[in-house]
């Protein structure tokens, strides 16, 4: 067997280095995403986890150059897709990259289909190109709908989004964005709007798409359970910074950052029902308020003076487990 796609040595398809996003105009700009780095190899799935508002969507939208122009965001760093830096591509070159090189299931797939166009039109427009006849396009569209598990695909092509259930619309979105066999798929909390069983089916569908095409996947969620289910590696984000990353097994079994520990502790235990989930005391700092310190310090049980004056650097151990903390928890100190 050749090198497994999951081995860390495989050359990454996507390499993100020092990605930062500042919102607002120069003088009162607020840093929402701060020096985020990670990489993705073909066939690999990375889970990006963090509380609501920590900057996950901002990060992935910045990768695709899709931040709304209204917020006048300044994006810095590099985002290398097969060697090309997406952040330095001219605007004109983006359509050729999106959908083929890198693609995304956005956070609200329910409203992501155009209400005025049929499913067929919205899917087929992803499939056209020189030398593709309309009949062939139709065939491909039907195939693609089958691949995402939609029943009676021929009939669906002539339907409008409002005629489909939420779960089906979600699948159609998946079909559209993966129609051109992209190398990297970003899924931004694609299942939060779905009920539990549909959620599981959708995740299975994504995994089977991935198995067919060997694309890399960045899975954004605040649900650690989902990460444990489908991801190879995990990156934990807190207030715009990645505080810990590594293999899912390692990180979830012996988290070293105090925030990761708290996140795992707030998971509902599988064996008993609780009336109230334990939550992490305190809230995310308002963006822009903590710059020269560990942003978790106000909520951290182990915080000390240094934490409040200096940003902890990211340290990598031999296993590729990265932690940004001045006093990480001892390795293996389980409960």
């Amino acid at each position: 067997m050749t090198a497994s796609p999951r081995s860390p040595q495989a050359t990454p398809v996507l390499q993100v280095d020092g990605l930062s996003v500042d919102f607002g105009r120069a003088d009162d700009a607020v840093r929402i995403v701060d020096e985020v780095s990670f990489s993705l190899a073909a066939g690999e799935t990375l889970g990006l986890v963090g509380e609501s508002g920590c900057g996950k969507s901002t990060t992935v939208l910045a990768l695709l150059r899709l931040l709304p122009p209204r917020v006048s965001a300044r994006v810095s760093g590099t985002v290398k897709l097969n060697g090309d830096d997406l952040l330095r591509l001219p605007e004109k070159a983006l359509p050729a990259v999106r959908g083929r090189g890198i693609t995304m299931i956005p956070q609200n797939p329910m409203t992501s289909l155009n209400p005025l166009f049929t499913i067929g039109r919205q899917l087929e427009e992803c499939l056209d190109g020189p030398g593709v006849s309309p009949a062939r396009r139709r065939e491909l569209a039907i195939e693609q709908l089958r691949a995402v598990g939609i029943s009676e695909p021929e009939r669906r092509l002539n339907q409008f989004p409002h005629e489909l259930s939420g779960g089906m619309r979600q699948r159609v979105v998946g079909a559209c964005v993966t129609a051109r066999s992209p190398r990297v798929l970003i899924a931004d909390e694609p299942t939060t709007a779905l009920d539990a069983t549909v959620q599981v089916q959708y995740l299975d569908m994504l995994k089977s798409l991935q198995a067919r095409s060997g694309m890399a996947m960045l899975f954004v969620t605040h649900d650690i359970g989902v990460v444990a289910r489908i991801c190879d590696r995990i990156a934990v984000m807190y207030a715009g910074r990645i505080v810990e990353s590594g293999k899912v097994d390692t990180v979830l079994r012996s988290p070293r950052h105090w925030y990761t520990r708290a996140l795992i502790d707030s998971l509902p235990p599988l064996d008993r029902q609780l009336d109230r989930l334990p939550t992490i005391a305190g809230t995310l700092p308002r963006p822009g308020t903590i710059t020269e310190a560990c942003r978790f310090a106000p909520r951290c049980p182990a915080a000390h003076d240094k934490c409040r004056t200096d940003i902890p650097p990211a340290v990598t151990d031999t296993d590729g487990h990265v932690v940004a903390c001045w006093t990480p928890r001892e390795q293996g100190s389980g409960q």
Partner: peptide, 24 residues
């Protein structure tokens, strides 16, 4: 969201504006 999706799909900007955005 649907215009954003049209961009994600890799449609040319002219199509995004003159078909997806304008019709709506």
């Amino acid at each position: 969201d649907y215009v954003r999706l049209a961009r994600i799909k890799g449609l040319a900007e002219s199509r995004v504006i003159w078909q997806h955005a304008l019709s709506n």
